[in-house]
Write a protein that binds this DNA or RNA. Sequence first.
DNA 1: CGGGCAGATTAACCTATGTTAATAAATGAA
DNA 2: TTCATTTATTAACATAGGTTAATCTGCCCG
Lengths: 195, 195
Amino acid sequence: MNDLLRKSIELYSGQSLSEECALQFNAFVFEKTLDKKALLLEAGQSCNYIFFVLSGSCYSYLADRKGDTQVVQFALEGYWISDLASFFSGNKSTYSIECLEPTKVLMMNKAAFEQACSAMPILERYFRVLIQNAYVSMQYRMAKTTSEEAEDRYTEFATRHPDFMQRIPQYLIASYLGIQPQSLSRIRKQLASKR
Amino acid sequence: MNDLLRKSIELYSGQSLSEECALQFNAFVFEKTLDKKALLLEAGQSCNYIFFVLSGSCYSYLADRKGDTQVVQFALEGYWISDLASFFSGNKSTYSIECLEPTKVLMMNKAAFEQACSAMPILERYFRVLIQNAYVSMQYRMAKTTSEEAEDRYTEFATRHPDFMQRIPQYLIASYLGIQPQSLSRIRKQLASKR
DNA sequence: CGGGCAGATTAACCTATGTTAATAAATGAA
DNA sequence: TTCATTTATTAACATAGGTTAATCTGCCCG
């Protein structure tokens, strides 16, 4: 089993993963390699997989009212990404997922997910905690977004995610923060002149 | 067992709840009645419970940078509300929860939550799906918030939650939407004149 | 090595929302 | 009922961020 994944499982489940489980897990997933700009998922299709990023990076997005890209999530190595609503319901996905770099992912479909969770309680717990944490930080981020200005949001993002800053183009970070690339440029300039 | 709760469990777990489970569940929770403006939770304390609203309504909020109230969630009858980060970690809560009306809640502490989930798989599943859905809609709401204008957000909120509109003061809805009460007033006026 | 394209910056102007302050309407307690 | 308090509205002005458009930078690929 991939080391990143093992660490993720042990970290979030709070338990250590037996060799046996690790082997069993491998039977439920498969690996895929994608080029930069390749799509892991296209909005409108049903999302049949959850993806674990082994190397590279990708992001999910939707088209807003005006047809512009609205970034929803970034995923570097060690992150899971998917359109969960579609994955769990089988309905058409609202998001697309695109690779930012050449990317390797592990893929797991719904049947495998259900089976793996039933077979290994540690996984059931792992995914529950993962989603729980994602929900909690989403809720917090939402509160910050509605109460703070773009400059503060950018500063917090840059502080929290220095690794993202290196590898993700600014115009996508701007979208994620809910502003135009031009505005982000302006904000960066202001911040630079403050020091 | 309360009927709202039974329906919620059956709806989200996708299974029907046996009489036996229903009785067993009751041993894990207790009821509390609160006045309007009473606090279910005060920011800074540890959040020891999750609350299921039986009647009345409440909302969670935090103080933003300027010390203003930033609404995080509303909960009418049939909703769960808590500070999950604090509930699961035991750390101090970032949110407060206040009753909007005289309110009756069911309360469940962490030990009870863990026990109940272990004892009854239907509950484990219920809470997982509940959080999963909450996460999914939070992510979607976030994308809408960063890409759409206040007017659209208000219209969508009003359409999706006509029940909230009747019972929640406008200045709290404004906070939830990330705008000032004055701006919401202005937006409502514009919308009214459009018809 | 050089042309083309994606990404970033800059600037001028525009608009939605914030701010401040005053008033009005609704609610609730005595 | 009346008064006090909370909530909602209105208006004038300020500003963060959007829009448009032009320029700049770097880098990928032929």
